[in-house]
């Protein structure tokens, strides 16, 4: 640090801070995401690297442009947009056309963040807003998955990746494969838990390796840069619900480990539900918020039309987060608590 300026400073509290600032926390979130991203590139090859770079680049570009147009000081340097871009890229299926990835990046930062007033004002996780719009706009592209660990994944990319902007991608069926959740939902094939832990399955660029995601989460939790109660509450809710359902009818419902480890639950619970702006602030609120995400995820996955529901569960919980906080607001001592 540079030595403190010797001039007299007049400012309001707080005068003593823990030293944690937005850019410091965000930088650590990026570090925590690096192993997951690297594994994605290792598992899916060049195409994942292209998708991640395109997602990151489009988010950074959107942030820079929007700050310029709205005549605000640039917030590129606080690393928050890097987190958004990286997270957004990790939720995309490898092989998604670059033009779609970049369009979604602009939407994530524009619609998810700047429309609401920029960093600190976004009611939803911007990365998920981008993904949700992409999912609704290009359902086929967003649900066409490429098999992991394909041979030649470091020497060639799927033809769909570099589709001409705004043209429909063409997929070769030989390269695509079903995600564990879709395989369970539509064909009743249950993937092995060990494959799910290590990440030997198909899925979005960064959702496959449960162990690396948890490692990143543990790092952030240890540095007190993430509220560990949120993922814990989600995991417990999902585990208890699925365990009970599986006990009641083993044929109709999958096992708890499968539900916990498959799809985007790990990535969503650890890195997205914990968005500092869009999640509640009170401890009880955080627990309710996590439980809500858990219940919604299980509901959408088991009884909804789509195989995966983590994204919508988190977005819906984001929407009610302020209300949860109001609901559990501690009452001031000496007042009735009915009317604050």
């Amino acid at each position: 640090m540079v030595s403190v300026a010797k001039t007299l400073q007049l400012r309001t509290s707080p005068h003593v801070t823990s030293g944690a600032s937005v850019d410091l926390i965000m930088r650590h979130v990026v570090w925590a995401l690096v192993p997951t991203a690297l594994f994605g590139v290792y598992a899916f090859g060049l195409t994942a690297a292209v998708t991640l770079s395109a997602a990151l680049a489009s988010c950074l570009l959107a942030e820079w442009l929007l700050c310029k147009w709205s005549e605000q000081p640039s917030t590129l340097s606080d690393w928050s947009v890097a987190v958004t871009g990286l997270l957004y890229g990790l939720t995309l299926p490898p092989g998604l056309p670059v033009w779609m990835t970049m369009l979604g990046g602009f939407i994530a930062v524009g619609l998810g963040k700047h429309l609401f007033g920029g960093l600190g004002y976004n009611p939803f996780n911007p990365a998920l807003v981008g993904r949700a719009v992409m999912q609704a706009a290009f359902p086929v592209g967003m649900t066409t998955w490429h098999a992991a660990f394909g041979s030649g994944r470091f020497s060639s990319v799927p033809s769909s990746l570099f589709t001409f902007p705004f043209a429909a991608p063409e997929y070769t069926d030989a390269l695509t494969s079903a995600t564990p959740l879709a395989a369970w939902k539509f064909e009743h094939n249950l993937a092995a838990a060990s494959d799910l832990v290590m990440g030997f399955t198909t899925g979005s660029t960064g959702e496959t390796s449960a162990v690396l995601i948890l490692l990143g989460g543990a790092y952030l939790a240890a540095r007190k840069m993430m509220n560990w109660r949120i993922p814990l509450s989600i995991f417990v809710t999902v585990a208890v619900l699925t365990f009970a359902l599986h006990l009641a009818s083993p044929e109709a419902y999958p096992t708890a480990p499968f539900m916990l480890l498959s799809g985007g639950l790990m990535l969503g619970a650890v890195f997205m539900a914990t968005d500092m702006v869009a999640s509640p602030m009170t401890t009880l609120g955080v627990v309710i918020y996590g439980a809500l995400i858990g219940v919604l995820t299980v509901t959408i996955r088991l009884w909804g039309g789509m195989p995966e529901g983590v994204m919508y569960a988190i977005l819906l919980a984001n929407a009610v987060a302020p209300h949860i906080d109001r609901l559990v607001r501690p009452t001031v001592y000496g007042t009735s608590g009915r009317k604050a």
Partner: peptide, 15 residues
């Protein structure tokens, strides 16, 4: 638009 155009399904949905 040319036949190769990828329609944005979201535009004909309520959102």
């Amino acid at each position: 638009l040319p036949a190769s155009f990828q329609p944005w399904v979201i535009m004909i949905l309520p959102s």
